[in-house]
Design a protein around this nucleic acid. Structure first.
Length: 575
RNA sequence: CGGGGUGUAGCGCAGUGGCUAGCGCGCAUGGUUUGGGACCAUGAGGUCGGAGGUUCGAAUCCUCUCACCCCGACCA
């Protein structure tokens, strides 16, 4: 491609609306253009990268046994009502009404549509397993799009759905997909960490996310540097230490005056006990129901875990007014002696005894509260937030945290969707059973942004060869020199004939402009030729990533270039 | 949805009641240049986000409204 005829222009200045590096560089290099909040067009450069990413994903899916298909984007809302996930997606669903007043959704994901399809085509266990995938635009009306391509409302996504006869077979499909994902990230030159994750609105039991660790990430990853345990903060566990007198004999309840001591810190200081010797109560509204969440004073509530435990869709802190209306004395509340309010507890209550808790009376707490002697909880589980510095749940290490971009998410869905969508099959004994599903998503645009986030310098993007918009930037200087012009032209023609992807800077610009554009766009290999290099019968070759150029003899430059490129691809793990 | 911010030329910005709205980059034409964003000359390009109001006079003051960005809530 000749730059003189190319659509799209580089920008010298950083557009004001772009804050994250990838957003700035993608706009400045002319890869994408914003249309609306969370809606982008891809210009030729960006589109080329996206298509290469797509092709790598397609190859790995095919290699793993996947079969590509295309599903509808318009989905009748009934499908979502049938699976019951219309509530889970809620406002994120883009909906519209057709001329017959029929309600439709723009697909945010395709489990419903594909289950329907599979239902009609799969009757026997002999038809399973199936790995079906699609690479299509999906729509989600995000509350807040952000960071350029990092979180958008219209996005290209690969989703693969697995259908198996039982859990064991699902485990196998899951592992096949996890490996395919590792291959994809390797080929994209993207270091991605597989972490345990919450399954959110998608539902299901087990799930993992693939994270690229970078400052602009919007997810917190909790990990153990010693044993490799890693999980999204929403999901992460920590080993909860025993409280100081965990082994103590339960003592009688005793009310003590604690004037003005409302927070855990104040109470603990006032009574000179560690915070792990206190109980904390947090008030929530869960789908409109008032809920007490009780946890040991040194820990915090993880709202994702709480939501999962309560199986509710809307969870928020109760307002002061709701607290007052429930007859709660804020700052001095506890579940002791309270009835008629749903109480859920963190299992840390069992890791201690003789706690300090609220007395449900202004200015008073009680000492020696013990579970379950003094109060009960309807639900008890781990609902604590794992924090950096906590003990690792798997080894004796200490947890750390980092921010990451979620570049892939795989789920073991189980049977809840297939049951609702009637996707049953007959097993070998003639019994009707729901297919066991898994789904495996990867966002292409976000992947593209993540690559830039972790592979750039102050000059611009640094694309790995496998996905670079072009492999080579052909950069002649002094184009008014006939010698240079004809040598460049000839080299361009030959390279193109050889199948090398060349961006030919045939503009009559100054060297600085050309070099800066080459760096900004981030083409892996730059070939410079000028009167100076021609005099030495050579052309200069420089990798975007490195500082030092090398000189190739003009005579067999094409051969040398091909060698350079194939060596580079091989070192990237791509063949 | 709550909080904060920004809308003036393609991009980045200046312009707090006054006459024809500026600057830099970019763009066009001509010329001189050419190894890290060159220089000179000439030129094109604006319903100042929109609507309403105040005023002799509004980019500027008031009201409403829309869009976009950031933080939070929420979310894959």
């Amino acid at each position: 491609m000749r730059l003189s005829k190319f659509f799209g222009k580089t920008l010298r200045e950083i557009p004001t609306e772009a804050e994250t590096i990838s957003h700035q560089l993608l706009i400045r290099s002319g890869m994408i253009a914003q249309v609306s909040a969370g809606v982008y067009s891809y210009l030729p450069l960006g589109w080329r990268v996206l298509r290469k990413i797509e092709q790598i994903i397609r190859e790995e899916m095919d290699k793993a046994g996947g079969q590509e298909l295309r599903l509808s984007t318009l989905q009748p809302l009934e499908l979502w009502q049938q699976s019951g996930r219309d509530a889970a997606f809620g406002q994120s669903l883009f909906t519209l009404v057709d001329r017959k007043e029929h309600r439709l959704a723009l697909g945010p994901t395709h489990e419903e549509v594909i289950s329907e399809l599979v239902r009609r085509h799969v009757q026997s266990y002999r038809d399973l397993p199936l790995l079906l995938y699609q690479i299509q635009t999906k729509f989600r009306d995000e509350p807040r799009p952000r960071g350029g391509l990092l979180r958008v409302r219209e996005f290209l996504m690969k989703d693969l759905y697995s259908f198996d006869v039982d859990e064991a077979a699902l485990d196998k499909s899951y592992e096949t997909m996890a490996q395919a994902y590792r291959n994809i990230y390797a080929r994209l030159g993207l270091p991605a960490l597989m972490v345990e994750a919450d399954s959110g609105a998608i539902g299901g039991k087990e799930s993992h996310e693939f994270m690229v660790i970078t400052e602009s990430g919007e997810d917190e990853v909790i990990y153990c540097p010693d044993c490799g345990y890693a999980a999204n903060a929403e999901k992460a566990r920590s080993a909860k230490a025993l409280a100081g007198n965990a082994a103590g004999q339960p003592l009688p309840l005793e009310e003590v005056a604690t004037p003005g001591a409302k927070t855990i810190e104040e109470v603990a200081t006032f009574l000179t006990v560690p915070t792990s010797q206190t109980l904390k109560v947090v008030f929530y509204s869960a789908d409109g129901e008032f809920v007490f969440a009780v946890i040991r004073g040194d820990l915090d509530i993880n709202e994702t875990k709480l939501r999962n435990l309560l199986k509710c869709s809307e969870l928020r802190l109760a307002t002061e007014r709701e607290v007052a209306e429930a007859g709660i004395v804020a700052g001095f509340a506890s579940p002791i002696g309270i009835s008629g309010i749903k109480t859920v507890a963190d299992d840390s209550l069992t890791l201690g005894s003789n706690f300090v808790a609220g007395a449900n009376r202004l200015g008073f707490h009680v000492k020696n509260a013990n579970y379950p002697r003094d109060f009960q909880a309807q639900l008890m589980s781990d609902i604590a937030l794992a924090r950096p510095g906590d003990d690792c749940p798997r080894c004796s290490g200490r947890l750390s945290s980092a921010l990451g971009i979620e570049v892939g998410h795989i789920f073991k869905l189980g049977t809840f969707i297939s049951e609702r969508m009637d996707a049953f099959f007959l097993d070998s004994s003639g019994m009707s059973r729901p297919t066991v599903m898994g789904c495996y998503g990867i966002g292409l645009g976000r992947l593209l942004a993540a690559i830039v986030e972790q592979s750039h310098d102050d000059k611009g993007a640094i694309w790995p060869l496998s996905v670079a918009p072009y492999q080579v930037y052909l950069c002649p200087l002094h184009l008014d020199s006939l010698e240079v012009a004809s040598a460049a032209e000839e080299l361009y023609q030959v390279l193109v004939e050889e199948g090398v992807e060349v961006l030919f800077d045939d503009r009559n610009e100054s060297p600085g402009v050309k070099f800066n554009d080459a760096d900004l766009i981030g083409i892996p290999l730059r070939l410079t030729l000028s009167p100076r290099t021609l005099q030495r019968q050579s052309i200069e070759a420089k990798w975007r990533r490195s500082r030092e150029p090398q000189f190739l003899p003009l005579g067999n430059a094409v051969e040398e270039i091909r060698t350079l490129l194939s060596e580079q691809l091989r070192s990237q793990g791509c063949t």
